[in-house]
Design a protein around this nucleic acid. Structure first.
Lengths: 121, 121
DNA sequence: ATATCATATGAATAATTGTTCATATGTTGT
DNA sequence: ACAACATATGAACAATTATTCATATGATAT
């Protein structure tokens, strides 16, 4: 049941299973795409932002609401909302001084669900 | 078309739409769950790890292969593989000195797809 | 045993990032 | 115009993290 060792070269620095590396290299994602993807997931990689997103998946909320809900400073929440806005995960509407935030699309709910599915094994 | 401003309180530090905050608070995820989720997504929030995962979604590969493919040091790759192992995203098998890595389940492909869907708008 | 090779790992460093603090912007009501 | 309030933002600081460098481990072949 051993794999063919025939094409195991030396790995001085670089060379190995040349054929495989070449093939995978051809099918690899563009660097640009990978970086965009990383930025996207990075946004989900913070508890505060996840909580905000989860809260907004249930109801639109203003900044004060969110700060109270998460027991965090208005400033901290506002900074994070900016990140979420810039990555187009949330949108907002103004009503006087109050700004109401909500999810930008349902798409995000699905990402969330995939994550939860993995976490809950 | 104005929203009812009736229950807009003052936001001195904390109080606001009390009713909404209370309801959302009750339906909020456990802190433990949120942190696990954040850890999970954090792993996807790095270009190197994304490239590794994408490569492994096409074929199992050894450490040397990956280092060559991504033009990175063996050490850097090895450190990242450790992260991916610890979060159960990849598994490995040994054949002599060579260690072959592969995806742990197809689940990960789906997360990837969701991300790509968002990035490609 | 020893040399060689593939991989792993600890420590150090550089870069990134979340939160706080202080302050600015913009809106409402007087 | 002014005071009060909701939100936004820049700078500073602390914590986290990806990579490099040096070295360790474990396996093969001679």
């Amino acid at each position: 049941m051993k794999k063919e060792k025939d094409n195991i070269e030396y790995c001085g620095q670089t060379i190995i299973h040349e054929d495989i590396v070449k093939e995978i290299n051809d099918r690899m994602l563009k660097d640009e795409t990978v970086m965009a993807l990383a930025e996207f997931f990075k946004v989900f990689g913070d508890s505060t932002r996840l909580k905000i997103l989860y809260a907004l998946s249930m109801s639109e909320m203003c900044v004060c609401d969110l700060a109270a809900l998460l027991s965090m400073s208005q400033s901290a929440i506002s900074h994070q909302l900016k990140v979420l806005r810039q990555t187009r995960l949330i949108k907002y509407r103004k009503d006087g001084k109050v700004v109401y935030y909500s999810l930008d699309d349902d798409h995000i709910r699905r990402v969330f669900e995939q994550g939860l599915a993995h976490v809950n094994e």
